[in-house]
């Protein structure tokens, strides 16, 4: 049994942390002695009880539909793997749909890494381009010479 007397300040703290139900109070005997001798403590207790009564009266809940819930759970337990996969993405935390969205991106990246280095192709293209340029210059020169010689004269 606690022999120390509880202060109103300590009683207020206790009410805020444990509520108005005396069976939940950690220092019940000291608190009850305070309530008997102190009007302020009685008032605080009445207010705390009033708040709890108000909450109980104002937050009713419809009767749970346990039978429907059981039937729904039973139905979902018997679904196939494809539905379970959809559920896994759809009903889980946010990272799951995000992962699903990023999966094609990651797949493309991995596939891209699998292709050969493009440098060799670039060299080949550059070489062919230069060759075409050289041949073009040669053709232009031949054409000019032909015109000057009167081959294309009207």
């Amino acid at each position: 049994m606690s022999t120390t007397e509880m202060t109103v300040h300590a009683f207020t703290r206790m009410l805020e942390r444990h509520g108005a139900d005396a069976s939940r109070w950690p220092e019940r005997q000291a608190a009850e002695r305070l309530v008997v001798r102190d009007a302020k403590a009685r008032q605080l207790l009445e207010e705390a009880r009033g708040l709890e009564d108000l909450l109980r009266a104002s937050l009713p809940v419809p009767n749970p539909t346990a039978a429907r819930m059981r039937a729904d759970v039973r139905g979902r337990l018997s679904t196939g793997p494809s539905q379970q996969l959809i559920d896994w993405f759809d009903r889980g935390p946010l990272w799951r749909p995000l992962m699903a969205a990023l999966l094609p991106l990651g797949l493309g990246f991995v596939l891209g890494l699998g292709f050969p280095e493009p440098a060799a192709d670039d060299d080949l293209i550059a070489a062919v381009s230069l060759l075409a340029f050289d041949q073009g210059t040669y053709l232009d020169e031949s054409l000019n010479a032909s015109v000057e010689g009167g081959e294309y004269a009207p």
Binding site: V61, P64, T65, A66, M69, R70, V73
Partner: peptide, 9 residues
């Protein structure tokens, strides 16, 4: 579910 479903609901 019968035993705890109501409280959870």
């Amino acid at each position: 579910m019968v035993r705890h479903g109501g409280a959870l609901h």
